[in-house]
Nucleic acid binder design. Sequence first.
DNA 1: GTCTATACTAGGATAGAC
DNA 2: GTCTATCCTAGTATAGAC
Lengths: 233, 233
Amino acid sequence: MVSKILTKTASKPLAKNSVKTPRQSSASPRALVPKKPSFKQQMLAAREQAIIDVVNRLLSEKGFEAMTVDEVAFDVGVAKASLYKHFPSKEDLAAAALVRMMERAVAYLKEIPAGDAPVIKLKAATRWMMQLKLRGEMPNLPSQNSTLRATLIGNTTYIDALMQISDTLGDWIEAAQANGQIRSELPAVTVLYTLYARACDPVLEFLQATGSYDNQQIMQMVETSCFEGLLRR
Amino acid sequence: MVSKILTKTASKPLAKNSVKTPRQSSASPRALVPKKPSFKQQMLAAREQAIIDVVNRLLSEKGFEAMTVDEVAFDVGVAKASLYKHFPSKEDLAAAALVRMMERAVAYLKEIPAGDAPVIKLKAATRWMMQLKLRGEMPNLPSQNSTLRATLIGNTTYIDALMQISDTLGDWIEAAQANGQIRSELPAVTVLYTLYARACDPVLEFLQATGSYDNQQIMQMVETSCFEGLLRR
DNA sequence: GTCTATACTAGGATAGAC
DNA sequence: GTCTATCCTAGTATAGAC
């Protein structure tokens, strides 16, 4: 467990989620039977998915600051005011996209075969991030934007997913250090951050911009430099 | 020479430099004697240096988008309108800071002993960048901001310095690959970009934020992971 | 070349009808 | 919950006096 490497913030309950699963009174006789979402709710959820898709793309293309709500509304094909019925602010819009990304990451990590060697798992996770980035689906966190950060650390779902991911990766890192595959001089946090950083590595887009290499080659090169190092063995 | 790795843009002559060295008519009998700058010019240059210092700091703290001209003016202690007498736009303000950074880089590279092994030179250059970043003096290029990019590629001084740096580092990289120190499977461009990326590596600030390591330790760790790789030899 | 005061615009957010 | 129309702040840039 390396969850201690993340400052555990007292995550206050989330303000409100726009699309809730229908909550029945626990006194109801059918309380244990999840009710199928109504047609309207399905439409709503689909609309929000579409919004999040657009936000995700814009976030990866231009980053949070440069993305405008007008643009989001236009691309979704909806009025700006309607967006604000779904999400209370631009920050929450971005947060929703990030939350979905986190949930996808959690889901992907679960797919990795448990029997694989720790290093193999770590490489798989890294490749997954790089692939998203190369496909223009990895949101660009403009690092030190304060208003977005504030929203994010207040988002329990986001924080929980992030910590879950960090714990999983952290365990793999420690296992890989224990069995001698990853160098132990580097603290596990450093390794973790180094892997995370592949999700926003400018080298990926620079190499892509040269047009000389395809995505497979680029991922291979960055993986090599990251795991094997620049120096020859 | 790897200058071909950078798209050689036809760099049009710079619009105008706010502080020019006094230009005498070439017909003048003292044309070859550089005239000492007048007191007023020295004051002007000093003022502009102060402005650039502030811009540089803000650029590294919050990036281009989040930096406001009001803030710059306030921190310099001058009226906003006065700033615009020195620099025609916010973009030019940032460009000036970046140009100075480039010139410093060029100067630093020249200081590196020519007799050192290529890899040693590359490590020195990398450490220089990381040190600036850790000290909060490395401007944060918000990557894909279009208006700033446009100004930059129109700035001959900037482009020339960037190409000069790339050539120098490129030569060292190729030398290091030739003598077997740096792995040759990786194209020189990839190595070059990988080193450049240390100037904006989020791992540096993340590790700094933990408060568990001092700058020397952080630089050592990142250098290790970059050159030696995460895997144990 | 410095100031104060102001013009102008982009962009986040809301009002209020349907 | 969607729309049109509008508000309002922040932020770039400029006018014009000294």
